[in-house]
Design a binder for these strands. Structure first.
Length: 482
RNA sequence: GCGGAAGUAGCUCAGUUGGUAGAGCGACAGCCUUCCAAGCUGUAGGUCGCGGGUUCGAACCUCGUCUUCCGCUCCA
């Protein structure tokens, strides 16, 4: 574990040093739990995003993509349950420094009463709590906790702070005149942009159930504690797909998507024992089944993707709040119904972090006479920020001119990088450090027969081949993904 | 949010009992005429996280603040 923590630190440093990820607004000391993607990080992230997008919308004929706005009508968040469930009153015990959700604390107290045979008292406690919560009466809640002599299980005292509200949604104003402005929220999840567009897409696309709507976009959560690099950020990017199905078929589709999504991750070239499913026992308010795909990060197994059977909760609520029918006529069963939904929701930033964790390697290359090592990022070539580096052996004798010609040929096909400074070995190492899978070196023989050497990142081996077959070789490697 | 630790050049760090900062690597420009880092020459970079206070004088003492890490806590 200690060495894993070290590896995690090393990855964070490497990301900063080599232009992958920087703390946001770093010149002003940074902004907590916000990060910026640099020149190579943004390429990597974009490649992952495109890979996911393709695997959803191109490889499945019945899945289409949308790009919904971050701002949504405020009622959206009432219908989705976020207004009620995304802001929890909390209270701290001053002695033990433990923080509790107020409802959890009082519920535990009620349970204790019930166990002690005081069923009526327990019910009364719950009823009082609910009425206080409903009116957001925080002073009353604190007084109630004190009156009931609820104690912290750790310190055993009733030395409580005030009840405080933690709203996990970011809000802002729509409308520039203050008195006319409406409070709106930055979306805490992208899913609702799909649900409110369900009918638009279904009708305009003449979609037949089962079908899916995919989306990639930013979401925002005012986490109480956001930490661990890009694992938990306040602003993050989700890649989600909502799959609309016939009610009653959710079990089977849930299992189907669990399998599909696991395959997707393993197909990134990651060993399957680095993943596991974690089934939720305590289900969110919208779900009848839910699990996470967890990846074994250097900080341990952590959630990478959520797969949720969301029932008809969202569409039903939007129907209720908007008074627009969210129904689908299914000719096969000759019925109108509100579709059920299976959701797959994967964190893009977490996928970036997974690929970095997977790719980062410190290799000892020492021989008997020489100590040597390198840091290499072994990304799958299709996802690597730069595919090919073009490196003239020296910057004389017309080699750079040939290099420029090779660049012109290749740069329209994939991302290339040109470099003529420093020794060839140093340049190889720099390319290893950003995960470039192929380096092409132009040497004096190139002038005679127009052949170059291609050097492979992982094996460090070289082959000589004509410039004319370069693109074919690299593109075939990019397709086979090795 | 609580507790603990840390913050000096891009990175890793040094800086003696307070006297306005150094090294190695890196970067940049050249040279060596070079197929796997650490050869040579030169150059540039720091109001010592930020802001008060003590002092003739603060990187060093003190208070606050920000950020990061570790542990709790929280987590749709």
């Amino acid at each position: 574990m200690a060495s894993d923590t070290k590896k995690f630190q090393a990855i964070i440093s490497h990301c900063k040093e080599y232009g992958f990820i920087f703390p946001s607004s770093e010149i002003y000391d940074g902004l907590s739990a916000v990060y910026d993607y640099g020149q190579w990080g943004s390429e990597l992230k974009k490649n992952i995003r495109e890979h996911w997008w393709k695997s959803m919308t191109q490889f499945h004929e019945n899945i289409v993509g949308i790009d919904a706005a971050i701002f949504m009508h405020p009622t959206t968040w009432k219908a989705s349950g976020h207004v009620d469930n995304f802001s929890d009153p909390m209270i701290d015990n001053r002695d033990s420094k433990k923080r509790y959700r107020v409802d959890h604390l009082i519920e535990a107290h009620a349970e204790a009463l019930e166990t002690a045979g005081k069923k009526d008292a327990a019910e009364k406690v719950i009823a009082t709590m609910e009425s206080l919560l409903a009116t957001n009466d925080y002073t009353g809640l604190k007084k109630f906790i004190e009156d009931e002599k609820i104690k912290c299980s750790v310190s055993g005292t009733s030395n409580w702070t005030d009840v405080r509200q933690f709203n996990l949604m970011f809000s802002t104003q729509l409308g520039s005149v203050a008195e006319d402005a409406n409070e709106i929220f930055l979306r805490p999840e992208t899913a609702q942009g799909i649900f409110v567009n369900f009918l638009n897409v279904q009708k305009s696309g003449r979609m037949k159930i089962p079908f899916g709507i995919a989306q990639v976009g930013k979401a925002f959560r005012n986490e109480i504690v956001a930490r661990q690099f890009i694992f938990r950020m306040r602003e993050f990017e989700q890649m989600e797909m909502q799959y609309f199905i016939r009610p009653g078929s959710q079990k089977e589709w849930y299992e189907f998507w669990k399998g599909e999504r696991m395959k997707w991750h393993v197909n990134l070239g990651i060993s399957s024992d680095k993943f596991r499913f974690h089934d939720h026992t305590k289900l969110a308010h919208y779900a009848d089944a839910a699990c996470d795909i967890e990846y074994n990060f250097p900080i341990g197994f952590k959630e990478l993707e959520g797969i949720h059977s969301r029932t008809d909760f969202d569409l039903k609520n939007h129907q209720e709040f908007s008074r627009k029918k969210m129904q689908y006529f299914d000719p096969e069963v000759n019925q109108n119904y509100i579709p059920y939904v299976i959701e797959t929701s994967v964190g893009l930033d977490r996928t970036v972090m997974m690929l970095l964790s997977e790719a980062y390697q410190e290799e000892d290359l020492s021989t008997n006479d020489k100590q040597d090592s390198r840091v290499v990022l072994k990304f799958p070539p299709t996802l690597a920020p730069v595919k090919l580096a073009v490196l003239p052996l020296t910057k004389k004798d017309g080699l750079p001119e040939i290099g420029r010609r090779v660049m012109d040929i290749c740069k329209t096909r994939f991302k290339c990088f040109y470099e003529e400074k420093d020794t060839i070995g140093k340049r190889y190492r720099r390319m290893d450090a950003i995960g470039t899978p192929f380096c092409v070196t132009i040497d004096h023989q190139t002038k005679e027969d127009d052949t170059v050497t291609i050097r492979f990142r992982d094996s460090m081996l070289q082959e000589r081949l004509p410039v004319s077959s370069l693109i074919t070789l690299i593109e075939s490697r990019l397709q086979s993904n090795n």
